[in-house]
Design a protein around this nucleic acid. Structure first.
Length: 275
DNA sequence: AATTGTACCTGTCAGC
DNA sequence: TGCTGACAGGTACAAT
């Protein structure tokens, strides 16, 4: 479900509620969603700790707690983090509940149960494979045009696959990849190393613009996504291609075409995004 | 080494 | 009214 804009919206929404809060209880309803830690161990380690900082890396949420502990959450396709200022009963798809000092609760809700939660200390975090393999933040200073050009020059896979891969740049998923490629007028099937220098520059700008707008809109709600207060995003009204296969291109009127790339459905305009 | 396919889960919707 | 299959904001791991 959530890509960078959704995860960032959740992070920003939770931050004011969670900073300085003390964890008083952990209820694990679906142990298989814990990675490399048992429910008992998670409870023992976290109870009594304070949440000091909330950050995001790619699509990972990082809860920095006292005693150098970091709770790492990945929402995958349908995960949600919902904050309640009072106790709240678990629902069918509630997978984990974090109880906080005043009677407040953070619920991890996840229909498909693909989301993952783990607990690391700061040393483990700095050696944690999934984070080490992540490319730079697309809206941060390390994602320079020069870096992007060099990274694409030696890749033969379709540009869409590269953008989805998280290794060259972190945080893009199926929605924003298709939208950024449309904005840049680039065909998703085009081999990454076949883009002209001008195209790479346009794509670099398109990625950053698309994500910036989506963050400002609080993300995209298609079916599951809700922010930490249970509110929808609004970027869906700006979608140009995602989910619009067979409909008319808003720019030229051509029929939008679909294909499958990296196992994901892909939509583009054959006229505005020629191969 | 890079790239692709499949598994992990559950729910929804179209078509029969 | 069911049943079946395709598909859904993602990643990890095995097999090319």
């Amino acid at each position: 479900m959530p890509e960078l804009p959704e995860v960032e919206t959740i992070r920003a929404g939770l931050e004011p509620h969670l900073l300085g809060q003390k964890i008083t209880g952990i209820t694990v309803l679906r142990p298989s969603q814990l990675r490399d830690i048992s429910p008992e161990e998670l409870s023992t380690q976290l109870i009594g700790k304070t949440i000091n900082r909330l950050s995001r890396r790619g699509k990972y949420l990082l809860f920095y707690c006292s005693s150098e502990l970091i709770l790492v959450v990945h929402l995958r396709m349908t995960g949600q983090l919902l904050y309640y200022s009072a106790g709240k009963p678990a629902m069918v798809h509630t997978r984990l509940i974090i109880s906080l000092e005043p009677p407040a609760e953070l619920h991890f809700h996840d229909v498909r149960a693909l989301g993952q939660i783990t607990l690391l200390n700061s040393k483990q975090l700095s050696n944690w494979r999934p984070l080490l393999l992540l490319g730079p933040e697309p809206l941060g200073p390390d994602f320079t045009l020069e870096y992007f050009q060099q990274s694409l020059a030696c890749r033969r896979a379709p540009i869409k696959n590269i953008l989805l891969g998280q290794r060259i740049v972190a945080g893009l998923g199926n929605i924003y990849t298709d939208e950024a490629l449309f904005k840049a007028g680039i065909n998703p099937l085009r081999p990454a190393n076949m883009l002209s220098e001008a195209q790479v520059q346009i794509l670099w700008t398109a990625i950053r613009q698309t994500l910036t707008t989506a963050v400002a809109d609080g993300g995209t709600t298609i079916r599951d996504y809700l922010n930490s207060s249970g509110i929808s995003g609004s970027f869906q009204r700006r979608l140009q291609v995602y989910g619009r296969k067979g409909q008319k291109c808003r720019h030229c009127g051509s029929e939008l075409v679909g294909c499958r790339l990296a196992g994901r459905s892909t939509v583009y305009c054959p006229h505005c995004q020629p191969l």
